[in-house]
Amino acid sequence: MKIDAFSHILPPRYFEVMQGMVRDPRALKRWLTLPALYDVDARLAMMEEFGPDFSQILTLSSPPIELLAEPDSSGALARLANETLAELVTQHPRRFPAFVASLPLNNVAASLAEIEYAIDELGAVGVQMFTNVNGVPIDDPQFEPIYAAMARRDLPIWLHPTRSATTADYRTEETSQYEIWWALGWPYESSVAMSRLVFSGVLERYPDLAIITHHMGAMIPFLEGRIRLGWADQFGSRTHGEEARSALARLSREPIEYFRSFYADTSLSGSAIGTRCGLDFFGSEHVVFASDCPFDPEGGPMYIREMIRVIDSLEIDEGVRDQIYSGNVDRLTHGRLGLLLQDLGHGHPGEKADAGIGRAH
């Protein structure tokens, strides 16, 4: 059983509306070359390569809803996104056993209403947040009710990076060059957002909140030494003021432990090196299989194929491999995926794995 935990889609009805809201049509250039992103039949045909035991949890593709719609209309756009995602799950439960709800994050009240509707009524298994909300950091106090709502439901937040070419690489320039904004800027965005959630105390206040970080926790695993020793143990020595000291005082554990409490997906474009590094940092119980489908040179199957190759090549027990492929994400969603897929004739995710593996929050 392989459950792709972070794959992207634009349901056709939503995509039609979305296209009319994009301010710069050129921004859709890449999207329009990926039929598996918005054509459900193309997506299903592409998935056939990976056999009947392959399925995907659906997340809405960028751009973020709050980038498309103003606060007074973003709630309606999020509602359309979630209802059309839920329709796909209902229509194709074997391939799409679950979806992650989208939120109109420029309107917190509407986001809370959407959490209640999408999770409690439509059956979403979590919510997606982006690493900033039109430039506002996600540890801003206005978002606290969202973390509280997800902590009460004990369901994950899927964290996706966002940054555009308008974020220049240098102050003397107006735009980013060579797609650095994406290749390096997105991992930076994720790493910054994770750091803000740690040092602002969000994870201290909600210690059981599961956050699934895209692209294997971005830069964090590789920079373990800078975080554990160079950063935390000398925190504040490079800058003036009491901010660093007060931030550490809010935490009951070493900062590195909060970083390890994140979950990470395997969306690494087929990188074996990055996968091993992430596994070493987060531990296999905090890693979930994901592909970033369909954003690869083949329009969908390549990254799936490459990540399966990498995971199958890892020198780990088969039970641990099963946890990565399906058991961990099933556990995070309280067995809802496993029960659904079992009812459809599949085995239960991770059923061969060590029953002692649990959440490490």
Rank of each mutant, 00 (worst) to 15 (best):
A81T: 07
N82V: 04
N82K: 01
N82T: 00
E83T: 06
E83D: 12
V89H: 01
Q91W: 00
H92E: 05
H92Q: 08
P93K: 12
R94N: 10
F96K: 13
P97H: 09
S102Y: 12
S102P: 03
L105S: 14
N107C: 10
A109P: 00
A109W: 00
E114I: 03
E114P: 04
I115D: 13
L122E: 05
L122V: 11
L122D: 11
V125Y: 09
V127A: 12
V127H: 06
M129L: 11
M129Q: 06
F130Q: 13
F130S: 02
V133H: 08
N134H: 00
N134P: 00
N134R: 14
V136H: 07
P141C: 07
E144Y: 08
I146Y: 15
A148F: 07
A148D: 01
A149E: 08
M150E: 00
M150Q: 09
A151S: 12
R153K: 11
P156Y: 13
I157V: 09
I157L: 08
W158K: 00
W158T: 08
L159C: 08
R163D: 14
T166L: 14
D169K: 03
Y170M: 13
T172M: 11
S176G: 06
S176E: 04
S176L: 02
S176I: 03
S176M: 02
Y178G: 02
E179N: 15
E179H: 15
W182I: 02
L184E: 11
G185N: 10
W186G: 01
E189K: 07
E189G: 04
S190Y: 11
S190N: 09
V192A: 02
V192T: 08
S195R: 05
S195F: 12
R196I: 11
R196W: 11
F199G: 04
V202R: 09
R205I: 00
